[in-house]
Amino acid sequence: MEAVLGLLVISAGVSHGLVTSCDAIQNGSQCYGALGGTVYLQLVTDATRYDALSFWKGSTGAKTGILKMRMDKWVIRDTPIKDRVHFFINNGTFRLNNTRRNDSGEYLLEKHESDGRSSGIRGLQLFIEVTYPSSPTAPVSSPQLSSECQSHGEMRVSCSSEGDGPQYSWTLNGQTLNDTDAPPYNMTNTITLKKGLSGDLTCTVRNNINSDTVSRRISHCPGNLLFNLLC
Rank of each mutant, 00 (worst) to 15 (best):
M69Y: 07
V205S: 12
L197K: 06
S158N: 12
A47N: 11
E106Q: 15
M69H: 00
T213A: 03
R84M: 01
N90G: 08
F55N: 00
H16Q: 13
D164Q: 06
P139Y: 02
Y32F: 14
K111E: 15
T38I: 04
V19I: 10
V85D: 00
G92R: 03
S141M: 02
L43D: 06
S160H: 08
C159S: 02
P143W: 06
T188N: 03
G105W: 08
R156N: 11
M69P: 02
Q125V: 08
Y107G: 04
R95P: 06
L172P: 05
A12S: 13
S118A: 13
S151Q: 12
D181F: 08
N173S: 10
D78V: 14
L124W: 01
A62M: 05
C159Q: 03
F127P: 00
L96N: 01
R84A: 03
G33N: 01
A12H: 08
R100P: 01
R95E: 12
H112C: 02
T131Q: 09
T20M: 05
F227D: 09
R95K: 15
G120H: 02
G58N: 03
V214L: 02
Y185R: 09
D46V: 11
V85N: 00
W56H: 02
R217L: 12
T38E: 04
K57D: 10
D23M: 07
A34K: 04
P80D: 07
W170C: 04
